[in-house]
Design a protein around this nucleic acid. Structure first.
Lengths: 184, 184
DNA sequence: AATGTTTTGTACCAATCGGTTCATTAACCG
DNA sequence: CGGTTAATGAACCGATTGGTACAAAACATT
C-alpha cells in the first residue's frame, strides 16, 4: 500500500483559500501556500497540477461552501433572504474580508480562464436567485432589473470590506438599502 | 547644462498608469513599465524612488485628472451630476476598464501605505461631493446615507466593468438606479 | 524482517523579480 | 571645437518566483 499521506484534499483547500483570499492569485507565493497548508511543494504538486489549478480548486471549494449555506434558497423566499445574503455573504469564513469571488474579479487579466468562467457562472446564478426572491415579494419594479441592482450593490459592499470601515456602518448601510428596496 | 532627457514626468505617468490599472501593483513588472513608458530602468529610477513611488504618483495623476473633469462640481448641483458621474466616472482614460482606485482596493494589503491613504481620502471626498449634490435636490431621505449607498453602487459598478458585460446593460442599470433615487 | 509502494524533505532548476552600478553617449555652453 | 554635464543602455546583483528531480523515510503487506 505504501505510506499514507497526512493531509486530505479538502483540508488543503480550506487552508489555501485564506491565502488566495487575502493576497490574491499573483501575490500568493508557493512558499506562503506551503506554510499555510502545512504541505510542502512535493505534496501540493502531487495533489494539484500547478498554482493555477490550486487556485481554481480553492475557488470551487469557496463557492460550494457558500452555496451550502443556502442564504438565498431558504423558504420562504423574499426580502429576508436578500438581507441575510447581504449581511453575512461577504464575510463567511475565518475572519476573511469581503467576497473571494468579487476580489478575484480584479485579476481577471491574469487568472486562469477556468476561474473566470466559474466566477461569471456563479454571478449569473446569484442574479437568478436574487430575482426569484424578489419576484416572491411581487414588487412594482421589474424583478430582474432589481436583482441586478442588488448584485451590483453586493459587489460594492464586498469591495468596501477591504477598507477598514466599521462593521456597524456597513450594517446600517444594508438596512438603508433594504428599507428602500422593500418599497419598490 | 548637459544632455536633456527625452521624456517628461507627466508623460511617463500617463503611460505607466494603464499598466498599473490593468495589471495591478503586484503584477505590473518593471519590464512592462519600461516598455509602456519607453523609458528604461535608469530613467525611471532617476525620476522616481522605486516601484511603489511610481505607483503612488500614477495614482495621484489619475485622481487629479479625474477631479479636473469636475463631474460632481458642475453647477447646478443635483441628480444630473450624480448620473454623469456614474456613467463616465469608471472609464475615463484610453479604453481602461473600471476605476483605478476601486481596483486598487483589492491590493490594500500589499500597497504602500501612502496609496491606501490617498484612496481612503479620495473616497471620503467623493462621498461629501455626492452628499452635496443629493442635498441640493432636497430628498426625503437623509442625504449622507444616500450618498453612501450611491458610492457603494459606484464601487460595485466599477468592479463589474472588469467582466465583459455590455456597455448598454450597464447604462440601463444606471438608469434604473437613477429612477429610484430621484424619488427618495 | 524483508519487500514493495508511496509520501515526504531537500536540493536544484531556469526565469524573473525589483534595484544598482557604471561605462558610454549625446547635448549644451563657452 | 573642446570640455562639462547629464541621460542613456547594458551588464550585473541577490532574492524570489513557479516548478522539477530524486533520494530518504515511513508505512502496509507478506
Amino acid at each position: 500500500m505504501g505510506r499514507p499521506k497526512n493531509f486530505n484534499r479538502e483540508g488543503v483547500l480550506e487552508k489555501a483559500l485564506p491565502v488566495f483570499w487575502s493576497r490574491g492569485f499573483a501575490d500568493a507565493s508557493l512558499h506562503e501556500l506551503e506554510q499555510a497548508t502545512g504541505v510542502n511543494k512535493s505534496g501540493l504538486y502531487a495533489e494539484f497540477e500547478d498554482k493555477e489549478d490550486l487556485f481554481v480548486q480553492s475557488l470551487r471549494y469557496y463557492l460550494e461552501n457558500l452555496e451550502k449555506k443556502g442564504l438565498l434558497t431558504a423558504e420562504p423566499l423574499g426580502w429576508n433572504n436578500v438581507e441575510r445574503f447581504l449581511k453575512i455573504g461577504p464575510c463567511n469564513l475565518e475572519g476573511q474580508k469581503g467576497c473571494f469571488a468579487v476580489n478575484s474579479m480584479r485579476e481577471f487579466a491574469i487568472l486562469p480562464p477556468e476561474a473566470v468562467a466559474i466566477i461569471t457562472r456563479s454571478r449569473s446564478k446569484l442574479k437568478q436567485l436574487l430575482a426569484k426572491n424578489i419576484e416572491a415579494e411581487r414588487p412594482m419594479m421589474d424583478a430582474d432589473s432589481l436583482a441586478e441592482l442588488v448584485l451590483t450593490f453586493f459587489t460594492g459592499l464586498s469591495m468596501e470590506h477591504n477598507l477598514s470601515s466599521s462593521r456597524s456602518s456597513i450594517a446600517r448601510k444594508i438596512d438603508d438599502l433594504m428599507d428602500i428596496v422593500r418599497t419598490l
